[in-house]
Amino acid sequence: MILGDGLFHFLVVFFRSSYDMYNKRQRKDATTPFADAAALVGPCLSFDDRRRSNVFLKDQIPTTVAIAGYVLFAVISVITVPFIFPQLKFYHIIVAYIIAPVLAFCNSYGCGLTDWSLASSYGKLAIFIFGAWIGMNNGGVLAGLASCGVMMSIVSTASDLMQDLKTGYLTLSSPRSMFVSQVIGTAMGCVIAPSVFWIFYSAFDLGSETSGYPAPYAKVYRGIAILGVEGLSALPKNCLNFCAVFFFVSFAINGLKEVAKYKNWKIYNYIPSAMGMAIPFYLGSYFTIDMCVGSLILYLWERADKRHATVFAPAVASGLICGDGIWSLPASLLSLAKVQPPICMKFLSRADNDKVDAFLSG
């Protein structure tokens, strides 16, 4: 559902942008599809939104620069990655860079919609694709993990940049300055991250059960890579069938939503988001509860004072997200102090619940 929702919106944006560029070239009254910023912004937005859009659009990053930069780094990766991981050939890297922009768009869309980057899910997809392609005898396990790293680097960077551009849009910052800051930070990370890893690798026994850094995710991803090289036969029964069915269900939901929007049907606001439905399956029920409570607060706020809700909702949402993240620090301190919560809640199956009731009654 995550992949289907992202691909659907990618195709929608692609065809709409292509159609807009075609019309403007036919009229020959604009050089880019976004040249007429005022027409794009529209009169239906508030003054603040029109101002933000005008500032954001007048200082764009040239498309040629973006394409040239992506091609340059693709060439660098094609040359260097096979030297680091001989199991990956140059054509594997080329294929990864061809499909990465589509997955990067899907992740950026999902991150903007739910504030949750799903780069790891696209990385696991790369493990299965390249692991099955290369095979066990040719080092498919290591190649799958390496391709996962390449894919996650591209996809996660795209969502991070989109979040930065969103912040720049809200704060009237220049998109170019945000992009340059991202480039500088990424360049610093290329030096700092390996250095920190080397310090940990030299000082501690990484990956060992007895050390303070057992790296449990390494075992998880290695297990996924082993499944990937064994092919579809290693997956649980009907796993691929479920995946394909809900992929097309996601397309159907989005198609119905687009038709309802075009026809101005009243059911448009009640058609669920496929991405919103899929995230709870991926992350767990706690995320669903947060989203439900937040949506309820926003709904009641809009009913009471729509103007203030529209203006201050992003600030309130940012504060709630920040508070939820910061709470992990006191939660860790309470856990270290072995403080037990005053109440505990569990969800059991019917059979287990009957056993508990029988035990308590006995």
Rank of each mutant, 00 (worst) to 15 (best):
G325A: 09
N23I: 14
L145E: 06
A143P: 00
F130D: 11
D29T: 12
F242N: 07
Y97K: 07
C292D: 00
A358P: 06
S202T: 13
V155H: 00
P236F: 08
D164P: 02
G123L: 02
F242V: 12
V339E: 12
Q87F: 06
A193R: 04
A313I: 04
D354Y: 05
G168P: 06
S53R: 07
D36Y: 08
M345V: 14
I267R: 03
M136Q: 10
A38C: 11
C106N: 14
V311E: 04
D29I: 15
L360H: 11
D5H: 09
V259D: 00
P236W: 12
D354C: 08
G4W: 01
N269R: 12
A234F: 06
I253A: 02
F247N: 08
S117F: 07
V249R: 02
M1F: 13
L235K: 01
Y299A: 04
P330F: 13
S285N: 00
R350T: 13
V78P: 00
F8L: 02
Y22E: 10
K261S: 09
R27V: 11
V13G: 05
I224S: 11
L7Y: 04
I226M: 03
G42F: 07
I271V: 08
S273V: 01
F248T: 03
A218E: 13
D205W: 07
S117V: 04
C148P: 02
R307T: 09
S120W: 10
T32K: 10
N241M: 10
S211K: 01
S120T: 11
F130S: 07
D49R: 03
C106L: 09
A351G: 14
F105D: 01
S117R: 00
C111T: 15
D354K: 10
A126W: 04
V12L: 15
I94H: 09
K24L: 15
G207V: 04
A304F: 08
G185H: 04
G140V: 01
G319R: 00
I271T: 03
I199D: 02
F34R: 14
G144K: 05
L142G: 00
V356N: 05
V102W: 04
K124E: 09
N54G: 11
F73Q: 02
K24N: 06
A304I: 13
L334T: 10
F359Q: 00
V229L: 07
A68Q: 01
V75A: 07
F200Y: 13
L360M: 12
K355V: 07
F90R: 10
F56T: 04
L165W: 03
F287G: 05
N107D: 15
L235N: 01
G110K: 00
